[in-house]
């Protein structure tokens, strides 16, 4: 026995069922299937099998209907069986949310898992996914989640997601732009900080915010941007390629 440890020692039966173990870890009481983000599982008890989404879909045809995003299929697994699965993400706060006949859009890298009664679709906003239906899902945030109501303008890096309101439009701060143009050295004025560009939310609903995070590499994002370049004709695509090569050489 180790002395001096005051936190409880968990076992398979004492672990919470569908509840937080602490602010940074969540215990799923698994009886059936859950979609879980690759790498989010930190421990499990019981008879649980983890299979890639596409692999599992070949056995269970309903998966394709629930997970309609081939882009992210390689980033997700299906946990199937009976037991307790504990998920966590970089020491971020983990929260569970219940969706009731609703729809919610969330940053893909912050979504850790969801029940198979929910349906996942890709949002039009790159890097975000939309959950539709009724069920529970888990999401991480840097610090506790802040809920705000539209009208609201959010910094793209700090935006966690939104529920029940129309997709945002982009807002450019004209003060900021004017200053930058006048100075004529736009690049120096922190364009990279993105302060002049915000997501503008209107209508009724809820916006979810977190403290801005350093971006985690979203493997699917590159594929997503690449697929968008199909909109370009050959000449513009070549010009874009040039610019990207220049950028990678500068860094």
């Amino acid at each position: 026995m180790i002395d001096g440890i005051e936190t409880p020692t968990w076992d398979a039966s004492s672990l919470p069922a569908d509840d937080n173990v602490n602010p940074y870890a969540f215990s799923i009481a698994l009886a059936g299937e859950w979609f879980v983000s690759k790498g989010a599982m930190i421990a499990y008890y019981g008879n649980v099998e983890f299979a890639g989404v596409s692999q599992y879909a070949s056995r269970a045809s309903w998966v394709a209907a629930r997970f309609s995003s081939p882009l992210y299929a390689s980033e997700w697994v299906v946990a199937a069986g009976q037991g307790k699965v504990i998920v966590a993400d970089r020491g971020y706060d983990v929260n569970s949310y219940d969706l009731d006949e609703g729809n919610l859009t969330i940053k893909q890298t912050n979504l850790l898992g969801f029940q198979t009664s929910l349906e996942l679709k890709q949002s039009i906003v790159p890097g975000f996914v939309t959950l539709i239906g009724t069920g529970k899902f888990l999401a991480s945030s840097n610090g506790p989640v802040i809920f705000v109501e539209p009208p609201f303008r959010a910094d793209p890096d700090a935006l966690l997601g939104w529920a029940d309101c129309p997709s945002p439009s982009q807002h450019y701060d004209h003060h900021w732009m004017a200053q930058s143009f006048m100075a004529g050295i736009q690049g120096m004025f922190g364009r990279e900080s993105g302060e002049e560009r915000q997501y503008d939310f209107t209508g009724a609903g809820t916006v979810l915010m977190q403290s801005s995070e350093q971006l985690r590499v979203d493997g699917a994002l590159m594929k997503l941007v690449e697929s968008q370049t199909n909109l370009l004709d050959a000449q513009s695509a070549g010009a874009l390629g040039h610019r990207l090569v220049q950028r990678s050489q500068q860094q």
Binding site: F152, D155, E195
Partner: peptide
């Protein structure tokens, strides 16, 4: 600090100071 704005509501304008 630049880059520290997470979001806002109301009529607020931001201006870089040099």
């Amino acid at each position: 600090r630049r880059g520290a704005m997470l979001g806002y509501s109301g009529q607020v304008a931001f201006r870089p100071v040099s």
